[in-house]
Design a protein around this nucleic acid. Sequence first.
DNA 1: TTAATTGCAAAACTTTTGCAACGCT
DNA 2: AGCGTTGCAAAAGTTTTGCAATTAA
Lengths: 129, 129
Amino acid sequence: MRKEILRRNTRQREIILEELRKVKSHPAANEVFRIVRRRIPNISFSTVYRNLNLLRDDGYVLELTCGKYSCRYDGTVSNHYHFYCLKCKRVFDIEGPVLKDMDKGVSKKTNFKVIYHRMDFYGYCKGCK
Amino acid sequence: MRKEILRRNTRQREIILEELRKVKSHPAANEVFRIVRRRIPNISFSTVYRNLNLLRDDGYVLELTCGKYSCRYDGTVSNHYHFYCLKCKRVFDIEGPVLKDMDKGVSKKTNFKVIYHRMDFYGYCKGCK
DNA sequence: TTAATTGCAAAACTTTTGCAACGCT
DNA sequence: AGCGTTGCAAAAGTTTTGCAATTAA
């Protein structure tokens, strides 16, 4: 990916990316902070935020937006979908094929460049329905 | 849609919904505030926020999450997808068939009750790519 | 050396909440 | 009357920024 400004390799950024790639969830910035602090106890919140923005700009992580507050970050390329229970508010992973064709279809239809998509199902889980 | 608590009709909520249905863009809460204030000059910010939440709970508007700050609101509830430009942050409606079959597929696979889904495409719009 | 990066604190910004007054029903 | 709603101000939560000190290249 294109870098607009020279980047220096720092332990902080390295470890943030490393941890983000390890985890299967999509942690919010404050959760990334909590995770990374286990390895760099005195890392600051702003360092985490700044590096998440740099990693996003450089294409190393995806920035997902899913709440009123808080972005979530995805260190993996492989996509999967989510199911949100309207009652108990839990979030479940949905296994199964990701519709990559949709991206091409939307690209053709709109003449936009589609990078990825997300799909969220809403309803009631086994215990709540 | 189901209302959990009795709602009273107020001029503020009425006008917020009215304006939201007029506009083709997907305004953030502060933009809704700006628009509505033209008709109710002394309306407060918190009234706008509270009513956007109520209208969302009652199914009258869609709450789109698309930035670090700020949700955006859509006065058209009928099913359609959205495209988010990663650069200019604008939101576009995607016309075209909604994949109702997916709901059934996920229902079968998970044994959850799927009510609806949303699909969000991310990338760069015509002017930004 | 030099300029990107860090940690800290404060600022900026969005959204929620507590409360007395107001106004639907 | 009863209680949902409003407007105001303050609080809460997330993200950014200013700055001196570090540190990678």
